[in-house]
Write a protein that binds this DNA or RNA. Structure first.
Length: 629
DNA sequence: TTTAGGG
DNA sequence: CCCTAAA
């Protein structure tokens, strides 16, 4: 199954290979599906089996189950199981079943302003040939103006294992979400389109290019339940258990605990790159479809441009761009590509839990901070110091310009302010020379500073950045090791938990949202470092509040803790070899001063301790005076 | 709140 | 940067 998420800002794809497990059937192996632009070589083989369709119906049933159990806990019984059997399918043309299933989906989510989409591609030539099927959940706004919030795509690239309920898809069969490139309607869902889409569905079915149908009518719901007889006891059992648990507070508590663990793990994974590397390429597969969620973050660059092929070609954002008459480059970013998330979840988990899992994964991922990568003709532009012109963006590259969102694990935040000019790319060019030109006493962030209040700084106010970047940081960090970054993966094991229990975790805003949002990373500029060094030289290493007041009083985003931390890293940076340093290079001269100041104040502290421990108190001042030459 | 350190 | 024990 391929789960893909789209939003206005980006799109993720989620794969859940263990949800389905179909061995090879007599019909032969279905290879990975083709992409939409791959029409030439369309074969006419069925895209999925009847059993796969049964699974689809099961999903529909679970969706319905979830909705109903959450909305009417009192009505615990006689809920029809929306499971369609093989026989059912044989009886029914898919065209008839499709609206039924769609209706059930819609029934599930209509109250939540979600639009359920079932689309199909008839790649076979017979009406009974099960079409390739997509099941989509599209979350719409109230007014339906901004659809495509969610999309769950089910590539029924499946074979059959009738014996048990475990089914698995070919994990490699990852496919673009919207292959219906030639169907302009499909890119925008709204309730208004429902009828039309449905109406043209038949015709489009004959079109191998694929189509999308949106069914909104509720008239079939009752019939759906009738037809989709309760073949699968499993669903019924799950359903029953879901409800029981949902009414049992005791059972839900462990879930909360485990959820917390999930978040904890997320945070750990997010902030500890070393740990993440340990998990790299490591798959924690759920033992018998029970146990963990694996989230794989990979650079989409690799996915869409690398050797692995254009798995997400259809997701590539269109970036209408043009050159204006002046030397400014104007471009609008329609959407970002975001790294891929990889999720595994037990087959017994409910769709609801899957939704939450995905949401949590995305939330955690986004909360971890994202960087922006700039792609030009598929190649990543790593040199942030190049101008747009130098990079070739200003001219021919406009049509081939792309942006990606990447994990922020590596210190190469390429935060773009792609607005009206290219100054953001020059920020580092500006900052550094500026810092050198300015006198030592140059204070930072002092647009509103009063020189009198900062006796240390005697001249040249306003030398460097300030809070002007409260939103945008200067993109002045090269990305020396973004390769690591691009391959970074996060695996988030989750303690084994009953899927049923997981499913009844109350809908709740992500725990992350309750926690304070992590502040955005704002690398210290050279001039800031200089100011810090300056202040520490004067005040010492134990008076961070004073340092803050003196040198960063106008930089609201720099707390004294930040300054202390920065000093710590500066000392570390100064002690390691230049080759190991990352980020915007700090002038060696500054680093030397860091070491000198650090040594000096460490000595002072040692002497102070020595004096206070041994010498008479009244001698301290004297001895300090002696040393304070 | 500020320091000091580990995470 | 975050989190927090201590001061």
């Amino acid at each position: 199954m391929v789960f893909q998420k789209r939003s206005d800002h980006g799109s993720c794809s989620y794969r859940a290979p263990t949800m389905l497990h179909f061995p090879q059937s007599a019909k032969g192996k279905r290879s990975a599906r083709k992409k939409c632009d791959d029409k030439k070589s369309d074969d006419n083989s069925p895209m999925f089996s009847l059993e796969a369709f049964e699974l689809l119906a099961t999903v529909a049933g679970k969706l319905l189950t979830e909705k109903e159990s959450s909305s009417s806990s009192a009505n615990l019984t006689n809920q029809p199981n929306l499971t369609v059997s093989k026989d059912d399918i044989k009886q029914e043309r898919f065209d008839e079943l499709k609206p039924l299933i769609a209706e059930s989906f819609d029934q599930v989510s209509s109250n939540e302003k979600e639009l359920i989409v079932i689309s199909s591609e008839y790649k076979g030539d017979g009406p009974k040939t099960p079409p390739q099927c997509e099941v989509g959940i599209v979350k719409t706004e109230m007014d339906g103006s901004s659809p495509e919030m969610y999309c769950l795509v089910d590539r029924m690239d499946l074979d059959v294992k009738p014996s048990n309920g475990l089914v698995s898809s070919d994990s490699s069969a990852e496919l673009p979400l919207y292959r219906d490139c030639d169907n302009p309607h499909s890119s925008s869902f709204s309730k208004h389109q429902v009828g039309k889409e449905l109406a043209v569905n038949r015709d489009d079915d004959e079109n191998s290019s694929g189509c999308r149908s949106i069914i909104n009518s509720k008239a079939f719901n009752r019939r759906m339940r009738k037809i989709l007889a309760s073949k699968s006891r499993k669903v019924a059992t799950d359903q029953l258990r879901d409800r029981e648990i949902s009414n049992t507070d005791v059972d839900s508590k462990p879930v909360f605990y485990k959820k917390r663990m999930f978040y904890t793990r997320q945070r750990t994974q997010r902030s500890t790159f070393k740990k993440r590397k340990l998990f790299k390429n490591c798959s924690i597969l759920p033992s018998h479809a029970n146990g963990c969620i694996k989230i794989e973050e990979s650079d989409l660059l690799e996915t869409s441009h690398g050797a692995k092929g254009a798995t997400s070609s259809s997701m590539t954002p269109q970036i209408p761009s043009f050159e204006s008459k002046d030397d400014h480059v104007k471009l609008s970013i329609k959407s970002f590509k975001v790294p891929e998330l990889f999720i595994e979840i037990p087959e017994t988990a409910t769709v609801g839990s899957l939704k939450r899992t995905v949401m949590e994964a995305v939330t955690a991922f986004l909360g971890g901070g994202l960087s922006v990568g700039v792609l030009l003709e598929g190649k990543k532009i790593r040199d942030d110091n190049r101008t747009l012109k130098q990079a070739g963006i200003a001219h021919s590259g406009l049509n081939n310009l792309g942006f990606t969102l990447e994990p922020n694990s590596a210190p190469d935040p390429v935060e773009l302010t792609v607005q009206e000019d290219a100054n953001f790319l020059d920020s580092s060019d500006v900052t550094e020379p500026l810092a050198r030109i300015l006198p030592d006493e140059c204070p930072l962030d002092n647009e509103a500073s009063d020189p009198n209040s900062q006796p240390l700084f005697t001249s040249t106010p306003n030398c460097a950045e300030s809070d002007r970047d409260s939103i945008h940081s200067p993109a002045d960090y090269p990305s020396p090791d973004s390769d690591k970054n691009s391959n970074s993966r996060a695996i988030v094991p989750v303690p084994p938990v009953n899927a049923e229990a997981l499913a009844v975790v109350p809908l709740r805003k992500s725990r992350r949202s309750e926690l304070a949002q992590r502040r955005i990373r704002r690398p210290f500029s050279v001039s800031e470092v200089e100011a810090l060094v300056q202040a520490v030289e004067k005040l010492g290493t134990g008076r961070w509040r004073d340092v803050k007041l003196r040198a960063f009083d106008n930089a609201k985003h720099r707390t004294y803790v930040d300054l202390k931390d920065k000093w710590k890293t500066l000392v570390h940076t100064a002690r390691i070899s230049p080759q190991r340093r990352r980020g915007e290079p700090v002038p060696q001269e500054l680093l030397d001063r860091v070491l000198a100041a650090q040594a000096y104040w460490a000595q002072q502290q040692a002497k102070l301790q020595y004096k206070s421990a041994s010498g008479p108190p009244q001698l301290i001042a004297q001895s300090l005076a002696e040393e304070d030459i």
